[in-house]
């Protein structure tokens, strides 16, 4: 079952206000529709193919698939990040970006002239060049998982310049955006199937805990629901 997403959103939006939606609706059907809508692989709009391979591999190492469930890749974090690049945030329009840009103590915060788009563009190319130089000509995405983790750990604690980007800044950009993709509303392309929220036990847009102010430490019993009405 498929509907244009705007129609679907309006329909669900209308339902959200009614008690019957929460109590009786078999909204599994909407979750299925959303999954079906995402059946074909996402084609990145900002990242080129090499960058996309790097991004997918790095996100997955930051938030790996394991016994707990899907990793960042399965949850759509790379898609989330690609889509964020075409927002005011990705373009750095929420930040003060006037010069002069100077080097300052780390505790005084970000002082580069680069918005997230350029952090990735310069950082990923340089990171791949770095792994090719140190790992038999292999790009980051072609390394074994354990090697990828080792490279990311190195970046996490290093001032080494990747383009104009210190390695630790590229790493933190990746870590933060990956976790945003895993744990934000699926509206933005990540947290597919609400699996990020399910892991933590976060109930999403339920946002009404009148009866759960104090249940003496019992676990909240209901699964998550998204802004569009998807459940898990």
């Amino acid at each position: 079952m498929k509907m244009p997403s705007s129609t679907r959103r309006r329909f669900i939006g209308g339902l959200l206000g009614s008690a019957s939606f929460w109590l009786y609706s078999d909204h599994k059907v909407w979750a299925d529709a959303l999954v079906a809508g995402n059946a074909s692989p996402y084609a990145p709009r900002f990242f080129n193919q090499e960058e996309w391979r790097f991004l997918n591999a790095a996100c997955e190492r930051i938030y790996p698939t394991d016994a707990h469930g899907p990793g960042a890749r399965g949850l759509g974090a790379p898609e989330f990040i690609d889509r964020q690049m075409d927002t005011a945030y990705g373009r750095g329009e929420l930040w003060y970006m006037s010069g002069p840009f100077v080097t300052a103590p780390a505790n005084l915060g970000y002082q580069l002239s680069l918005p997230p788009r350029d952090v990735y563009r310069q950082g990923i190319a340089a990171a791949d060049a770095y792994t090719r130089a140190h790992h038999d000509g292999l790009s980051f995405a072609d390394l074994e998982a354990t090697e990828q983790t080792a490279v990311l750990k190195e970046f996490e604690h290093s001032d080494m310049a990747l383009g104009a980007v210190p390695a630790h800044l590229l790493f933190e950009q990746l870590r933060q955006n990956t976790l945003e993709g895993v744990f934000s509303d699926p509206l933005y392309g990540g947290n597919k199937g609400l699996a990020g929220w399910t892991l933590l036990g976060f109930p999403g847009a339920r946002a009404d805990f009148m009866d759960w102010v104090n249940q003496e430490g019992a676990a909240y019993p209901f699964g998550p629901v998204s802004i569009s009405g998807e459940t898990a």
Partner: peptide, 20 residues
């Protein structure tokens, strides 16, 4: 992006913008 503050810890430092 329109207006911010600059910050330094001590009087002998050069303040830099609170960019984010």
């Amino acid at each position: 992006s329109q207006s911010t503050v600059t910050i330094r810890n001590t009087i002998d430092q050069t303040a830099v913008p609170y960019r984010r």
